[in-house]
Design a protein around this nucleic acid. Structure first.
Lengths: 228, 228
DNA sequence: CTATGATTCATACGTTCGTTTGAATCATAG
DNA sequence: CTATGATTCAAACGAACGTATGAATCATAG
């Protein structure tokens, strides 16, 4: 009885799917494109993965399992070192977002391709993709929120949850890097290389996130009188 | 010779497409779904709009034209009032993002449905959609960036451009409102109504954006220390 | 009224989609 | 060697896709 050994066909499918889903989205990528780019037979996806839905879930799972384990490991280590005292907000933000962003330099973990894929898919409309993320992320999100509650005891919990949401948005949009609105313009030479660009992004994004997290609490104008 | 009168068929198609693109994305929505929901014949889309690509562009154009005109109008009014002096960053942020967010209450402008559609589509991978946004937005983006440069003369321009990018990301993710990671949890009662939720979001988001915009400049680890 | 052009309609075209099938090929155990 | 199960392969399936066609229907001008 031969055992389920599965050569690199499966991995080549996942790699090709990762690239193509990043470039064209889930619905915009066909099985024929994937198997063509991977250099395998069309039927190989259904044989090794089962279906297109199972494929995209596996594309994320093989990266997110490591990422969220690492986030947990980092948080546990920081909390052990702090010995019961609250962590600094910057530590927590770095543990969650910094750990993600450092994946860009690690080609074994998908590198920048996976980061951009994740940034785009977090707002993907497909119901089963949203449900998958919610399940995959709930534990680590809860732990980091608790750490922030403890680090910022004077800020209402609801406020922290909102700001966590905003930080996620700024990060996922930044790493998606679509430049949909061509925000980065001519006189910014750069655009050298995607990885290189991310090196310069990370410290800037972290400053922005911390600035937003520690911003003064909003003033609610009575009767919702708009602004100003 | 009868003139091109076009009853409300065209509008009903655009309304249905707006809802369905918001819920299922561009590639995930079929012409048959759209015409079914609109209660019109399948061929009506190609007759009134030409093609699916032209349809989605018109869905955005009928809202974005007004939005970006309004943003221009607000900025011009503020600058006229300031009489050459720099504006306050909070004014500029409110002019750009506040004007967008206030569309949520204006059902004639698409309301929250259009806001969520826009938030999701800004990271859509389709090439022609990105090109469309870049063209549609470039003028107003440039004007607001210039206003920020003037308002924050001590901050390097590149830094402001990055932070504009981050603000866009936080905003589009927030209004997309997918809750992909179920950030808003149980003990937050709410979830009453989508519009109601947005009322509470706006002041919080504005505080966050301003906090991020005015955050201390990032410290670059030596080697390649870029700006500052 | 009739005539004209705008709009709607049922239907079909050709293509591409995700998936399945069954035979061919490969690797390994006995 | 043969036997067995894992893997690959070419081919096809039915369904759904975006689009096009030409006749029917409608509104209005003369």
């Amino acid at each position: 009885m031969a055992e389920v050994r599965s050569p690199d066909t499966r991995e080549r499918i996942l790699d090709a799917a990762e690239r193509l889903f990043m470039a064209h989205g889930y619905e915009g990528t066909s099985m024929r494109q994937i198997t063509g780019e991977a250099g395998v037979n069309l039927a190989a996806v259904n044989y090794h993965l089962g279906s297109k839905e199972a494929l995209v879930q596996e594309v994320f799972r093989r990266r997110l399992d490591w990422l969220n384990d690492e986030r947990m490991r980092v948080l546990n280590a920081m909390e052990a070192e702090a010995d019961g005292k609250p962590l600094k907000p910057s530590q927590i933000v770095d543990g969650f977002f910094g750990t993600l962003l450092r994946m860009a330099d690690d080609e074994r973990r998908g590198g920048i391709t996976f980061l951009r894929l994740l940034g785009r898919m977090l707002t993907d409309p497909s119901e089963f993709i949203r449900a998958f993320f919610a399940h995959e992320y709930s534990e680590v999100i809860d732990r980091y929120k608790e750490a922030l509650f403890k680090a910022l005891p004077d800020v209402p919990k609801a406020e922290i949850v909102w700001r966590f949401h905003f930080m996620l948005g700024a990060t996922s949009y930044a790493i998606a890097g679509t430049d949909a609105l061509r925000v980065v313009t001519d006189w910014q030479i750069e655009e050298a290389d995607a990885t290189d660009r991310l090196d310069r992004l990370v410290p800037r994004l972290m400053s922005f996130l911390l600035g937003g997290l520690r911003a003064p609490l909003p003033q609610f104008s009575d009767a919702e009188a708009v602004g100003k």
